[in-house]
Design a protein around this nucleic acid. Sequence first.
DNA 1: GTCGCTTCCTTTTTT
DNA 2: AGGAAGCGAC
Length: 672
Amino acid sequence: MYDIISPYLQILNPEQKQAVLHTGNPLLILAGAGSGKTRVITTKIAYLIRECNVPPRAILAVTFTNRAAQEMAERACLIDERAAGAMLRTFHSFGAWFLRRHTQFAPLSERFVIYNEDDQAALLATIMTNASKEEVKGVVHKIARAKDYCMGPDHPDLDAIDRSEEFRRLYRRYEDKLRRIGNADFGDLIKMPVDILRENPDMADGFRSRFEVILIDEYQDTNIAQFELLKAIYDPASYLCVVGDDDQSIYHFRGAEVRNILEFPSQFPETEIIKLERNYRSTAYILKAASSVVAHNKSRLGKNLYAERGEGSLPVLAFLPNQQEEANFCAELVKRSYEEGGCYADWAILYRTNAQSLHFENEFSRRNIPYRLVGSLRFYEREEIKDALSLLSLLVNPRDEVAFRRIINKPSRGIGAVSLKKIVVEAAAQDGNLIAVSRQIREKLSAKAQAGISLFLAALDRSFSTLDKDGASTMVSQLADQAIKHSTYGIEQGIIAGEGLSLCAVSLIMLSGLFTYHKSQDEVSGTQRVANLQELANAMSLYPATLNGLAEFLENAEIDRSRGEQNDDEESPDRVTFITLHNTKGQEFKKVVITGVEQGLFPRESKFGEALEEERRLFYVGATRAKDELYLTSCAERRLYGWTMDVYPSIFLREIDKTALRIIGRAPKGFK
DNA sequence: GTCGCTTCCTTTTTT
DNA sequence: AGGAAGCGAC
């Protein structure tokens, strides 16, 4: 048996193999960029199942994004399909999974909805009635940070975030209100499971014995609450393996603590460490350029990364006059390589802020170069989509005040501030069910508001009826389908319902008047809102037309934002990628352009100390995405807020080893 | 309560 | 430059 080494293990290098075969003590894998850590983790999952007889369901593997989780599942299944039975999730989706199964232990509605930052702000705005938007956002941010550190409103260490009693009061009232609504924010997805597991030792024991193996990827970007969650479900008799790279820690602004990885060996005694230092992705000059920048950081473990792929070509630094020329330069690069037989999909255009994508979109559209925009789309944050999601949320949780406020008078139904207040106040006096209260007290409102409420409730009711409570009932669906067709008020063209949940969505969008409203918006300003609503309905057709199916869809919409982008893959897969530096984590491309490498933009203004070091790591992450070619662009002027201003090369450009760089264009005076 | 014009603000990065 | 909030007129 031992003589025969399976082919899936043969392709590993000695360190990778050591990491895969390792068992026993906790293991920390320090994996440099491009060192094959995904291969190690996926192989390890398969190996544990095949060779160590670990039942798949006893394996918990945590990744940073849903995209990574999906990729990992696919790759592990290629080696052994039983890997499909392992639990592969992000921390947040694990938390949501946990809470859905334990709502009776959590202060949550049975089918809670997840609030994002905007929803949090909308909720807090009902408490901070006289505050500016900025103030509200500031407090939202602090509350989110507090939860990242697993601190409730009465936690003694809250001083580290804000010393004021006022903040504690706001945090308390926010929690109070959110609990009454019965929904959860992002921080709750981690903090609540921790609280529940601490209060219910038996349940914690159950998890400890279930998960014999816990694997965590991107460990450098975990936060304190996630560390607490790990401790709550980790049994010292289980096998724990974390993978990360301190040089790629780029989410401190979101509460990530690199000390989780630095202190891992002391947190988990007898930890063994394996370093993966062979880089299989980038050619040597690219690696040299990237490493020479991050070498300027003081706080790092320090490691050596060896390029296994030969010298390659020098990274190119292009000095350009302005953004227009920058977009033009990128388009020319892509065009030339395409004409020489390359693919569009080889290319990625990277930038620091989402706003920068616009110039590239315009230029590439003009030239008919296909591209895909990652992330910045924010499909689920678009106005029309949020409107539709609010309606859907109300079906799932009629106590959702944020959704109710958003949608009750949109489009205008004659329900103004006065009527709204009556409903909200009455609901607060009862059990908080805004829909039930609206129905109950509608007679007490003005005639106009009464009519509006009735229409609104009818739309909800009829859409609700499209959902099967259990089992299939096509009869119900057909009836509802007809009802919808008859109630489009002579609109020749509506949104088309497909399978599953899409009927419910279409029903709501049509009957609530959202369709007509956004259609007229489209006609006025040439937007694509109706098309987006259609796309939403299409996405929903994959889910069963049940209340649970709807709750599941809403959860995925909030936690997995990458989902909205997938539909364009089928049409033409060969596209240039436009993506923020943060979003590139875990990805690779043959040819990469990092744009806007200017002081003030990247690194951003007012970054110093630890924050500057984080920007440097971001540069490192971006540069090491490139396999064959790396380009950096820096403009002499940039337009900001409608103003054109002179800008200067990023400090990072000076830090690059000059033997690993070819400069083109006119370098500004003083740039050496 | 709604519509249209003016002013003021925006840009980090995301699960 | 462009979009959202705010203010005044119907």
